[in-house]
């Protein structure tokens, strides 16, 4: 292939500092430009579906919590709702709000984590450190409410396993109030830093059509202009009772993905 096209193959992974999870990418590059990509996944496949078949409905939330460590509310959230749906169980109002609260708290921590890692990958370690510094109060709140920093084990078919104590509320409020200023600061820093813009604008563009064709979801699709947020369009728990904006952007490049997450 060498004579005709000038592509070189760069293997990335399965173990590479860029990735938190083992995956294998074969990049076909021409100079510094990626022209083709082959993906090999499955380094994380642990057969959770099969394992779950052996468990009782009450054990499954603990197992599915371990699908993903960064999003350890979303999978049990879905699992308990499926179980409740099958069993026709009504969930108390307060439990719905607690679930929503946990889900949103996790969103904050996950987006800060994303921002930090994005900075880290761009060689901007200060952004990483700062984002993760301000992520700690979120984890503290989790620890206060659920007893663990990650893998909260809060979800249970029919409700939640622990209530939020009245004594804990002022502390949690104080921790979360302290987040507002740093978050605004991040919005300013990321959206205005010229070097960050130079690195992320018009890079990795996922157009609206491609996004629909490939079935991308979540913040990635919102960055490409798909106005879809399951919290708004298909509300569960208490999402129909709380107010929030769904942010979509048009370009679908890395910069827009950051905008959507902030």
């Amino acid at each position: 292939m060498a004579a005709k096209s000038r592509t070189t193959i760069i293997p990335i992974g399965p173990y590479h500092p860029l990735q938190e999870e083992p995956e294998f990418f074969k990049l076909h590059v021409e100079g510094e430009k990626v022209v083709k990509l082959e993906i090999e996944i499955g380094y994380n496949h642990r057969g959770i579906e099969k394992l779950a078949e052996d468990l009782t409905y009450d054990q499954v939330p603990f197992l599915v919590e371990r699908i993903c460590g960064i999003c350890s509310t979303s999978h049990p959230f879905a699992a308990v709702q499926a179980i409740e749906d099958v069993g026709g169980v009504d969930v108390p109002e307060r439990a719905k709000y607690i679930r929503t609260f946990l889900g949103e708290l996790e969103r904050i921590h996950s987006h800060l984590l994303w921002l930090g890692l994005a900075g880290h990958f761009l060689g901007f370690n200060t952004l990483w450190m700062w984002a993760w510094k301000h992520r700690e109060p979120v984890l503290d709140t989790f620890e206060l409410i659920t007893g663990n920093r990650n893998h909260y084990a809060m979800f249970k078919p029919g409700g939640v396993r622990r209530d939020i104590m009245d004594e804990d509320i002022p502390t949690a409020m104080r921790l979360l109030d302290g987040l507002v200023r740093p978050l605004n600061m991040f919005i300013k820093v990321v959206l205005q830093d010229p070097v960050l813009q130079a690195r992320t604008k018009n890079v990795g563009v996922l157009s609206y059509d491609d996004c629909v064709e490939l079935g991308a979801l979540g913040p990635t699709s919102r960055a490409s202009g798909v106005p879809w947020d399951v919290r708004r369009d298909h509300p569960y728990a208490a999402y129909d009772k709380v107010d929030f904006n769904v942010i979509t952007t048009e370009n679908g490049d890395v910069f827009d993905k950051a905008v959507v997450r902030l």
């Binding site: 173990y15 990735q19 938190e20 999870e21 083992p22 380094y43 994380n44 496949h45 642990r46 371990r66 699908i67 993903c68 460590g69 960064i70 350890s72 984590l113 890692l117 990483w128 450190m129 993760w132 510094k133 700690e136 920093r149 990650n150 893998h151």
Partner: peptide, 20 residues
Amino acid sequence: LAASPCNNCDIEILDLLTPR
């Protein structure tokens, strides 16, 4: 070295490097 983890340990490792 992440050998099919759920990511949580990995994130906590990175946490070790961060200011706290």
